[in-house]
Amino acid sequence: MTHDFEPQGHVVLDSSDISRALTRLAHEIIERTQGASNLTLMGIPTRGASLATRLGDKISAIQGSPVSVGAIDITMYRDDLRSRPARALLPTTIPPEGIEDRLVILVDDVLFSGRTIRAALDALSEHGRPQLVQLAVLVDRGHRELPIRADYVGKNLPTSRSEKIQVNLVEHDGIDEVRIERES
């Protein structure tokens, strides 16, 4: 999202909020997975993949052992492929351990309709059969259209459908922040 003049909307999470939320998510993941052994974080590109990397770094810093991190592109599994010209594909990286029989946590920036996660589950199943799949998101904004929920949520943000949630990350946007914008 580029702002030509005055940025619309307002910041709901700043850089330190995001960092604290990710730290809490890391602790929750370790607690609920009993030490995070056998864990693989699979981020959904673009921003979900960066968040997965950050979460992986935090978990391995706490645990003192490396965490397996990958990325899974969902483009070809979307249910609205035909609604726009062909979209560019993004990289899928499967860690050397694979995902077979592992505890996989999908990571994304915003959970909205749930359709992206449905696509991610389909994409994931092409690469193996995890023992368990969970979902971690930085922001849950509600308005689900499928029976999907997140296991780990950084921040619940009640929104109206006409609003837009914009997650900016240093890796892509030069700044860490989450904004709510009114659709013009």
């Binding site: 070809m76 599994y77 560019a88 594909l89 990289p91 899928t92 389909d122 690469h127």
Partner: peptide
């Protein structure tokens, strides 16, 4: 460049053992 980059991702999928893609 778009064709080559798309081919790169598709080649990677094949290498990762995904024999069939749905689009």
């Amino acid at each position: 460049i778009l064709v080559l980059d798309t081919a790169k991702q598709l080649a990677a999928a094949t290498e990762q053992g995904v024999g069939k893609l749905p689009p």
